[in-house]
Amino acid sequence: MSINRRHWLRLAAASLTAAWLGVFAIGAPAMAQDKVTVFAAASLKNALDAANAAWTKESAKETTVSYAASSALAKQIEAGAPADVFISADLAWMDYVTEKRLIKDGTRSNFLGNRIVLVAPKDAATPVEIKDGFDLAALVGDGRLAMGAVDSVPAGKYGKAALVKLGIWSSVEDKVASAESVRAALALVSRGEAPYGIVYATDAAADPGVAVVGTFPEDSHPPIIYPIAILSESENTDARAYLDYLTSDKAAPFFTEQGFTVLK
């Protein structure tokens, strides 16, 4: 085969490869557009999975969800991660992305409420009276108190605020097993790796391996509010319809059945 012929064949192969890549590159955004991408607090998983399945059945539209601590999701959004909707487990991380001008004006609302509870492995659960000065340190003993990271994970921040208000934070601070999300903290208790943990009531309801032994007074911590918003970079025309569905009376039972309070 001549050099010129080999050169021509290489050019033809390169052109064909480029053409195929171009087809996929053009097709990729269209395929991605078919799904609403949601960044949601880990504590929402059970309820949101059920609501999403119902929305898909009704609308024939699909979702893809990344569940993690609200802090991690907010940082990913700031770094440019592609998503359409953000549901935070507290106001602070939604405020963070709002201040960065990363949500669409007029789409933010307070979506859900929750409670924080003290949990123990189900086979070792004894009721605890949660009040000022209760001896949580003695209950934990030589074990660990599982919590979401108290400086970033919303459930951890609420838990620390409650322990400070009740006057016992200093007695348990060194016993805390810090987890990357509230679901990770829940797992430590469920597996018996920690005798107690502080999680959302909705998380406790979702895990048969734990039992609620006490509920923190509502006035011991800031109100637990989950805000929702469409992100400013979203070009998905289904995002608004999806948000409207989640905040509608039709979707409310998926959340109340898991123990959330639907905010209006």
Rank of each mutant, 00 (worst) to 15 (best):
R240N: 07
I225Q: 01
A54W: 01
K57F: 01
A125R: 11
A239L: 06
H7A: 15
L73M: 08
E129D: 13
G106N: 08
A138R: 05
S2T: 13
N110L: 13
M94H: 05
G148D: 01
A241C: 06
Y242N: 01
E193I: 05
A68F: 08
P227V: 10
I103T: 13
G133K: 04
L145E: 05
A69F: 03
V210P: 10
F260P: 06
T261P: 01
N114Q: 14
A81Y: 02
E99K: 15
V119L: 04
G159V: 03
K264E: 13
D49V: 14
E193Q: 11
V210D: 08
T256Y: 02
D90K: 08
L188N: 01
V85D: 00
T256N: 05
N46G: 12
F254Y: 15
E62C: 03
L139I: 04
G209V: 00
A72C: 01
E257S: 14
K100H: 09
R108G: 14
W93Q: 12
I87C: 08
P223L: 14
A251Y: 03
L166G: 08
F260V: 06
F111L: 04
N236F: 01
D244C: 13
S59K: 06
K75V: 12
W8R: 14
W169K: 11
E233K: 14
A155F: 11
A125D: 06
A13D: 02
V210W: 00
G143D: 01
G259M: 10
E78M: 10
R183C: 07
T37G: 03
E193A: 12
A252R: 14
G133E: 03
S109P: 05
L73I: 10
L112M: 13
A72N: 06
K75T: 12
T37M: 09
A54V: 00
K175W: 01
L16K: 00
A162Q: 00
L118W: 11
I198E: 02
K104E: 10
V182W: 13
T56A: 14
D123L: 09
A138W: 00
A155V: 15
N52E: 10
V262Q: 03
V65W: 08
I130E: 03
G159Y: 00
V153Q: 00
D95E: 10
D135R: 11
V36T: 13
K45N: 08
Y200C: 13
A79G: 06
L118A: 07
G27W: 12
G209D: 07
L11N: 07
A68L: 09
F216Y: 14
K250A: 15
L9F: 08
E173Q: 12
P127H: 01
K104M: 15
A162E: 00
S170F: 01
G259S: 08
Q76L: 15
A146I: 07
V262F: 02
K35W: 00
L102Y: 02
I77Y: 00
K57R: 09
P127T: 04
A229E: 02
A201Y: 08
Q258E: 14
A81F: 02
A28R: 11
P208H: 03
D49S: 13
A211L: 04
P154Y: 12
G133V: 06
A185I: 09
